Amino acid sequence: MHSDSWLYKDIVDFGHSTPHWVQKLMEMWTEVGLLLFGVLFVAVWWRARQSDSRAMALALLAPVGTAVAYVISEVVKSMIDEERPCRAVAGAAASLIACPADGDWSFPSNHATIAGAAAVGIALAVPRLGWFTVPLALLMAFSRVFVGVHYPHDVLVGLLLGAVVSFAAAKGLGRPVRSLVETMRTSDTAVVTWFTGPGPGLKSRHRRS
């Protein structure tokens, strides 16, 4: 039994003590909440089409860093093989959602990894959104324990893993991706220039012409 099993049991018990509508909201959030980060990725990319090449590079690297973090999380899961607490913790209340199938390991939490990576990636691209994305990521991580499918350490490590990988991707790949964006914006292929957007320079030239 893990050292934080007692905390897991306390959080799951707390979940069972909340009103039915709170439980349903948390169940819904833990299942579909990651879609909101996907919507934010698209919105940040669309905004970056009218911004400089650095902004576009960060907008593109946010989902890339998140995807890399997810792959690393999956690799770690396959190496550690930690059983889900909804099967392993004796005396714990039943999970609020179905316990994942045997072999769908617990450590680290993929949901928390994706949420942590997305939150940091989006915040780096649009800093003021960090006040929105970071609480969303924390809520996603908490919800995975609340509904009974992860230990607290699963989601904590997932958040940290996602955040570190996303930050490293933005810092390590920012310069080459920025150069790539600048090249793509001078392309003669319409779909390429549409994807990257005109940037602020072309807009200024249009206003002067």
Results as ranks from 00 to 15, higher is better:
residue 2 H to K: 01
residue 3 S to Y: 08
residue 5 S to H: 02
residue 8 Y to F: 13
residue 10 D to K: 14
residue 14 F to T: 14
residue 17 S to Y: 07
residue 17 S to I: 03
residue 17 S to A: 15
residue 18 T to I: 07
residue 18 T to D: 00
residue 18 T to N: 00
residue 19 P to L: 06
residue 20 H to L: 11
residue 21 W to P: 05
residue 22 V to N: 00
residue 25 L to Y: 04
residue 28 M to A: 15
residue 28 M to F: 13
residue 28 M to L: 14
residue 29 W to L: 13
residue 32 V to E: 12
residue 34 L to W: 00
residue 36 L to V: 14
residue 37 F to E: 03
residue 37 F to W: 02
residue 40 L to V: 10
residue 45 W to K: 04
residue 46 W to D: 07
residue 47 R to C: 00
residue 50 Q to A: 14
residue 52 D to G: 15
residue 52 D to H: 10
residue 52 D to K: 01
residue 55 A to W: 00
residue 56 M to D: 00
residue 60 L to A: 13
residue 62 A to T: 01
residue 63 P to T: 01
residue 64 V to P: 09
residue 67 A to R: 03
residue 68 V to C: 12
residue 70 Y to W: 13
residue 72 I to V: 15
residue 73 S to G: 15
residue 74 E to K: 11
residue 76 V to S: 02
residue 82 E to F: 04
residue 83 E to S: 09
residue 84 R to V: 10
residue 84 R to E: 10
residue 89 V to T: 13
residue 90 A to K: 13
residue 92 A to I: 07
residue 93 A to G: 11
residue 93 A to D: 12
residue 96 L to P: 11
residue 97 I to H: 05
residue 101 A to S: 14
residue 101 A to H: 12
residue 102 D to A: 15
residue 102 D to E: 15
residue 107 F to H: 11
residue 108 P to A: 00
residue 109 S to Q: 04
residue 114 I to E: 11
residue 114 I to Y: 11
residue 114 I to H: 06
residue 115 A to H: 02
residue 115 A to N: 02
residue 119 A to G: 12
residue 119 A to C: 12
residue 121 G to V: 01
residue 122 I to F: 06
residue 124 L to S: 03
residue 128 R to L: 11
residue 128 R to Q: 07
residue 128 R to W: 14
residue 129 L to M: 14
residue 130 G to Y: 05
residue 133 T to Q: 04
residue 133 T to E: 01
residue 139 L to K: 06
residue 139 L to E: 06
residue 143 S to Y: 05
residue 143 S to H: 04
residue 144 R to H: 06
residue 144 R to D: 07
residue 145 V to L: 05
residue 147 V to P: 03
residue 147 V to S: 04
residue 148 G to A: 04
residue 149 V to Y: 03
residue 149 V to E: 01
residue 150 H to M: 08
residue 150 H to N: 11
residue 153 H to K: 07
residue 157 V to M: 04
residue 159 L to Q: 07
residue 163 A to L: 07
residue 164 V to C: 10
residue 167 F to K: 12
residue 168 A to T: 10
residue 170 A to D: 10
residue 170 A to Y: 00
residue 170 A to G: 11
residue 172 G to L: 02
residue 173 L to Y: 05
residue 173 L to R: 00
residue 174 G to Q: 09
residue 174 G to D: 07
residue 176 P to A: 00
residue 178 R to K: 12
residue 179 S to M: 09
residue 181 V to Q: 04
residue 182 E to Y: 05
residue 184 M to G: 13
residue 184 M to L: 15
residue 188 D to Q: 13
residue 190 A to L: 10
residue 191 V to C: 06
residue 192 V to P: 07
residue 192 V to G: 09
residue 193 T to H: 02
residue 196 T to M: 14
residue 196 T to F: 15
residue 201 G to P: 01
residue 206 H to C: 08
